[in-house]
Nucleic acid binder design. Structure first.
Lengths: 210, 210
DNA sequence: TCGTTAAAGCGACGGGTGTTGCGTTAGGAT
DNA sequence: ATCCTAACGCAACACCCGTCGCTTTAACGA
């Protein structure tokens, strides 16, 4: 890890918003320790283990410091998510639209069925905290943007109409997975992921997303 | 799944389920007043306004009574949801699969964009309270069962293969609406609802849900 | 009508959460 | 080397939430 600049990126609350008047050693170190504590607690005990007090305790930082910089648990998660967005992920290129969409849905399925349910915890948090919600939406928007290349490749190959709405297609392909696993809490079968991807591809070829 | 958890019936705690040893006047009246208070508070201030204390206060009932009968906010919502499931709703019959699915998605869209966001509040609650989650899943299962008839009608008309998986098709049609409005918080445009319904219908006709 | 007993009312307690005012530390600039 | 001040540490506080033991009410049955 490099964390080139003290980041101070989007992060919901305040940590970096503004002129960042004092990005020096101690503040950065506190942030590092707190964010690590959040991740550790989330992995160990899920969302329920994520109390501000517990985070501060684990990080070896005083409670008030956490309250002042991150406001609440949502703010902490927002900051963690902001960091997570800065990776270099990109969708696989399998050579066909079906294959690409299935590959994406496999990853979605994996993320949603992972133990402990980090993604589920983040989504649950997004319903409570506006900062966490904003960070999560930014994260997803970024992911869908990166996935758009899959549709562009398919268009170039002539698999789908050139005017296909990439985002609409991607949402149609992935939404059923979220719906089944997150909202309906139904079968955790990978088959639903594959079927949803293939169905969306069929509709796209028929020009349903133009 | 039939490991008979310690909890009795469906509705989270106990309120109406079970032998109902004393369904007489006072208990019933208390339940009525409390459930009305929940609905009223939910309409006024959304989920955040829904504290046990506030409910008890509004209902003119002592706090401990609510805690004993419903346990927590999730239990209250579960009871409200259980009542809501006992209606006689059924999907419209427009004469075509496209029309039926679009009509369903219009209702989903309306429910999700309603002000105040009752559905959103219930879903948010389902992430915090197992009883509320169970009640919500039961509600949705019931709704999808009732909607299956539109697929059967389409199959009878020869619009889709006879072996079409009704639930998979319905999820593919509706999931994008939930995804956009609830998770991505994107455009509240009704067009997404219509497009998702039509795309699912296209895929179904091509036999993607068999 | 009257006794039984579920269920509601009541007050108090323990624990956790978020806030506030003030003292202390240390980063950054002169 | 020194000052300034942002950021952290600290302790106390008020508040809210959920629980517990006890008392009171009133539904149901004889």
């Amino acid at each position: 890890m490099d964390s080139s600049p003290p980041t101070t990126g989007i992060s919901g609350t305040d940590p970096g918003a503004g002129p960042a008047r004092r990005p020096g050693g101690r503040s950065a170190q506190v942030r590092r320790r707190v964010l690590d504590a959040v991740a550790a607690l989330l992995v160990e005990g899920g969302y329920d283990a994520l109390a501000v007090d517990a985070v501060a305790d684990r990080a070896g930082v005083h409670r008030t410091t956490v309250y002042r910089r991150w406001r609440d648990v949502g703010g902490l998660l927002a900051d963690v998510l902001a960091e997570a967005t800065e990776d270099d992920w990109q969708p696989r290129d399998t050579g066909s639209l079906d294959g690409d969409l299935v590959a994406i849905n496999h990853e979605v399925h994996r993320a949603l069925t992972a133990e402990p349910p980090l993604t589920g915890a983040l989504i649950a948090a997004s319903f409570r905290s506006p900062p966490a919600a904003a960070a999560l939406h930014a994260f997803w928007a970024d992911r869908y943007d990166r996935c758009a290349v899959v549709v562009h490749r398919a268009a170039r190959r002539g698999e789908v109409p050139a005017r296909t709405d990439a985002r609409a297609l991607l949402v149609a392909a992935t939404a059923p997975v979220y719906h089944e696993l997150l909202l309906l809490r139904g079968a955790a079968d990978v088959a639903v992921a594959e079927r949803a991807a293939r169905a969306a591809a069929v509709a796209a070829r028929a020009g349903a997303f133009t």
